[in-house]
Design a protein around this nucleic acid. Structure first.
Lengths: 109, 109
DNA sequence: ACCACTATATAGTATTACAAAGTAGTTAAC
DNA sequence: GTTAACTACTTTGTAATACTATATAGTGGT
């Protein structure tokens, strides 16, 4: 799917938070997951900038673990603040989704 | 609803296109419509920048008409290119919406 | 005269996804 | 033993967008 970039703003961070919420994970894995899911154009750099951001916001706990296949992995886990942020994200999403349905059905007055 | 700004990126322009698609309208009216719909923080400046943008992209035809209540109104109407863009917008939205449902249901592997 | 409401315009800002390039570890092929 | 392929993280700079702030202007009521 093309021209998704702008629509992903404010959404992609929430997606990453949800993925981390679903189970301790790391950047490379998140990228692969998003690619398989259908977001084919999302590259590592994009994911890593988001990870740096959510770390700075203090939403995650981090643990470094050795990998058998390459450099060490940085595992991310949502902390309490991160879980709160994720809840807020889904609330905002639900709001937008609802309004979009109203707008789409809107007829000329 | 707070902190909606980022999530509106790439969405708000489509919403404006849809509103124009539903019937010839102008900036001030679009702003009021969005406010009544629940997007309370969207102000005129935001809408006007979008209108300038879609005009530059060549998505609309414009007609100036006198108002009984103030300065002249600039009425916007989608042209063929605008209708195409609107279709593409809803396709992108449907894509994101579908993926978001998958992500939300995702369980730990 | 002043205020409220209608109506448009625009320069500057913050945030974000993405591009691009680099660093580094492991394994296998040649 | 070096080259390639895959894994894995980092960082600098860019483009696009919603928003802030401010300005201009017409109409009507008091």
């Amino acid at each position: 799917m093309k021209d998704l970039t702008e629509m992903l703003k404010g959404v992609l961070e929430g997606v990453v938070l949800q993925k981390i919420h679903a189970g301790e994970t790391y950047g490379y894995e998140i990228t692969k997951y998003l690619n398989e899911l259908g977001f084919e154009d999302i590259v590592e750099g994009t994911v890593y900038t988001i990870l740096v951001r959510i770390e700075k916001k203090g939403l995650v706990d981090i643990e470094k673990k050795k990998s058998e296949l390459g450099p060490a992995r940085k595992f991310y886990k949502l902390n309490v603040k991160g879980e709160e942020e994720l809840k807020g994200f889904w609330k905002r999403w639900a709001f937008i989704e609802e309004k979009m349905n109203v707008i789409r059905e809107q007829k000329d007055v």
